[in-house]
Nucleic acid binder design. Structure first.
Lengths: 155, 155
DNA sequence: ATCGTTTTCTTGACTCATTCCAGAAAACCT
DNA sequence: AGGTTTTCTGGAATGAGTCAAGAAAACGAT
């Protein structure tokens, strides 16, 4: 089994497959994240504590870091945001982030493999990943924005 | 004069052009950054203090924020790094970052205008910028890396 | 199943980048 | 030059994340 197939396994098997010990915090984090993509460490802690009733903050960070290193999780860090984690790791997809409400969504890679676009001049660098963040406004905030413009103008 | 031409002006005129007061810390920051692209707030503080012998840390942050908002500076925040600032603002260029030594270089935009590539599905988002970071190893670190591999293997 | 080793988790202190605050100082307008 | 507004100073505070030492749990061999 190659790394591509890991996403389809249960957390327990995923951990085994990459040689990490199977522990309650790890299972809970992987499981919770699988239904809550782009969550922060803080949000993961809250989610996990609902079903595990006592996990230290440090454990959350340890789990997130260990799994990220083992490529069971992917970490993204949009400018100005705390890190966010997701279980979708085996493809090279990118992200769409709302400047206003921080809503974050996946977008498929324009090309399909990493690095998905070559820099026009690499200056001798060995490039292994092109990270793309599309910044803008989500539909809800776009509406809110034009509403408040309207209000400002009419005052 | 449009925003595109600002980069060619002296700091004093740049500030005037965007309606910011002309102060010693602002002039020093803009001037120093013009010859030290991709510097952190900390590095800016050190550089500026060499020629101004007393600027508070807060002033550095205020200047960087004010100028970034006025688009005299551009702020980039590669994952895991403190924010970096540069005076090249009028184009939509991207960055190449060395995973090992943090060396950061400009790369011209593949397309030339923002957003330089459309997400394949925008989910209703209004996208105004595509931020691209190419991650890899700079030539120096690539050499160092293969050297240490060599050493490990031969032990 | 149990023991011993290794890894992970807990608690609590700590770092770093950055921001908040209140008052002093400087820049601009007339 | 004088008054107003903005910016700067100094110091405290914040948030995200890490470090460190010992307790607890997981694995692997007996």
């Amino acid at each position: 089994m190659n790394i591509q197939g890991l996403g389809r396994l249960e957390p327990r098997e995923q951990l085994r497959a990459v040689g990490l010990r199977v522990t309650a915090p790890r299972l809970a984090v992987l499981d919770w994240l699988s239904t809550h993509p782009h969550a922060t460490a803080d949000q993961v802690a809250v989610g996990v504590r609902e079903r595990l009733d006592s996990v230290s903050t440090q454990a959350i960070y340890d789990v997130l870091n260990a799994c990220t290193q083992a490529k069971l999780l992917r970490r993204i860090e949009p400018a100005g945001h705390p890190a966010r984690f997701e279980t979708r790791t085996s493809d090279n997809h990118h992200h769409l982030v709302c400047r206003q409400c921080d809503r974050t969504e996946d977008v498929d890679c324009v090309v399909g493999f990493a690095p998905c676009l070559e820099p026009s001049s690499a200056l001798g660098f060995t490039v292994d990943e092109a990270e793309v963040v599309f910044w803008g406004l989500c539909p809800a905030c776009a509406v809110r924005q034009s509403d408040s413009h309207h209000i400002e103008e009419s005052v």
